[in-house]
Design a protein around this nucleic acid. Sequence first.
DNA 1: GACCAAATTTTGAATGTCCAAAATTAAAGC
DNA 2: GCTTTAATTTTGGACATTCAAAATTTGGTC
Lengths: 229, 229
Amino acid sequence: MLPSSTVENYLKAIYLGEGYLAEGQRLMPMGQLAAALGVAPGTATTMVKALAESGLVEYEPYNGVRLSAAGEKLAALVLRRHRLIELFLVRVMGLGWDEVHDEAEQLEHHVSDRLIERIDEMLGRPEVDPHGDPIPGADGRVARHESDTLLTCPLGERVTVTRVTDQEAPFLRFIEQHHLMPGESIEVEARDEVSDSVRLKGRGNQRMTIGMRAASKVRVSASDASSRG
Amino acid sequence: MLPSSTVENYLKAIYLGEGYLAEGQRLMPMGQLAAALGVAPGTATTMVKALAESGLVEYEPYNGVRLSAAGEKLAALVLRRHRLIELFLVRVMGLGWDEVHDEAEQLEHHVSDRLIERIDEMLGRPEVDPHGDPIPGADGRVARHESDTLLTCPLGERVTVTRVTDQEAPFLRFIEQHHLMPGESIEVEARDEVSDSVRLKGRGNQRMTIGMRAASKVRVSASDASSRG
DNA sequence: GACCAAATTTTGAATGTCCAAAATTAAAGC
DNA sequence: GCTTTAATTTTGGACATTCAAAATTTGGTC
């Protein structure tokens, strides 16, 4: 029995919600899951119990839920479809990177393996989507390499934007307008806890100041010296 | 409230099932509808009553069902999406015309207006899909021009294939292999009721004989003299 | 005009997904 | 250790979609 859209969405939400606790015992609280999916808490409980029945998750009542190996693979494949579709919509269909998320959210559940393979081939087996998010392989494996954000990277060093971890259209448009998209080279000049802000030197040494919440959503890596002229 | 995939499929089935009775009072029998959708008869009855409630169809108990104006428009738009997607998959994605129907069957319910508009634009606002089926406009209007089939066209005259009205992959592959795809020029040499067969002269005057059922699924129009030399 | 077969509708029930509100449990403070 | 609060689960119910099987209607036939 192939998983419904709903099941795929639950698995994806758990998969994506796993960036918040130490290794090993990482369990997603039910409340967080319900909130992520926009359903009532009771609904999530019912659904998660069903998912546990079919072996896709491990459920610890009152504690939370975690993906099983099978569930994790399935979730990765959903994400693979999502991200390939996003990249396809931007590169081939010419849509804006701020408008492809919702479309992909729908299509990810209804595109055949055959078509996804065609898309992957047509795009040259890409490794990241337009937001810099890694695209899992057809086997469900992902190359996760840890990286800093604008909140954690060293001050006064040139870094390259690798990833923008917020899919909201207004935020993405802000990023685009300020030349903070993946690939751009920038530098963090200063951070100030009190004013909750981060000062940046961007393209053409243009200065800008953004809030810490926003800064935490921009991932960067040290600009590789070998990549410059 | 936007229509579910199920509702769209019911409307589409009624729309497509309307090629069998005289004008005006054309009603689709419930049994035929149920068969087209692959559901039990009782299921179709229940659903059609609900559709009648929401004004998408007119339902005459024990007689059958017909689309309302609203229902017809909606059905046409579903078909528009379906056919644009099919053409897109063939022309842009390079899939075979025998493998795009099922894919489109899924995607037609989940593609946004925005993306459909992009596809339409990218394909140059096409009028027919890969099978020669007309693509309704964004307003739901279709240019229906009547045409013959290989069963009804004049004998011994050159005609051009315009449309193949069976989406089954094996049939489409047969058509492709025998050069009977839309655009090909052919001639019906003879028909024989007793042997239930039709003899054709195809590309390069290649002879072939096909059954009457198959012949009825290939639509043709008189080859326009102005389109030669 | 009664009867039969075929088509159709009704009935009763199942599944998947959801909610609101009540009941329960866990955690934290005193 | 009791109590309050927050999180979670349970309960009872809704809605859309489906089925199988029983009941009904319709359209002929004799």
